[in-house]
Amino acid sequence: MARFKKAGGRAVPGINTGSMSDIIFMFLFFFMVITTIRTSTLLVKIMPPKATEVQKLEKKSLVSFIYIGKPLNAELGTESRIQLNDSYATVASIQAFVAAERQSRNEFDRKLLTTSLKVDADTRMGIVTDVKQELRKASAFKINYSTSKLNKDKL
C-alpha cells in the first residue's frame, strides 16, 4: 500500500468495520430466505408447464421427487429419461425407489408421502403414464404435477 501513497497526499481514513457484522448477517439471512436446498443435481432439462390452479406442497420432508425430461448431456440423445435421486433410472426401478423413500420416513409420515412429478412440458405422455402405473402398483397414490404459477389474467 505504501508505495501508492503520494508524498504529502491526504491520509485516507480507515473504513469503519463496526457494522460489518450487520451487513454480513443481512446477506446471510437474505440468502437463507431466497434459496431452497437442492437435494439432487438435475441430470435432465426441466421446464415445467404453467398452470393457474396450483396448490402448494405443504411439507417438504414428505415429498419425494421424480424428474422426467430430456438428458442435459447431449451424448445421451433426446429421448426423455427418468431421474431418481442422482442418477438416470428406468420405469422398472420406480417401485424400489418408492419403497426406499417410505423406508426413510417414520411410520406415521408414510401415509402422507406425496410424489411430485417434475416433468418437462415437451415430454410425451407415454413415459408419464408408465410412471403413474408404477406408482399405482407401489400404492403411492398421492401425486402432484409440478407446475409453475401463472396468473389468471395472463391466460
Binding site: 439471512f29 396448490q55 402432484n144
Partner: peptide, 24 residues
Amino acid sequence: SFLLLTFFLLTSSINTDQGITRKL
C-alpha cells in the same frame, strides 16, 4: 442494514414447490 433485511424479507417469497395435486 436491518431496514434492508426487513425489506427483502417482506418482498421476497420463499420458493415453494407447487403444482396440481391428484390422487391416483
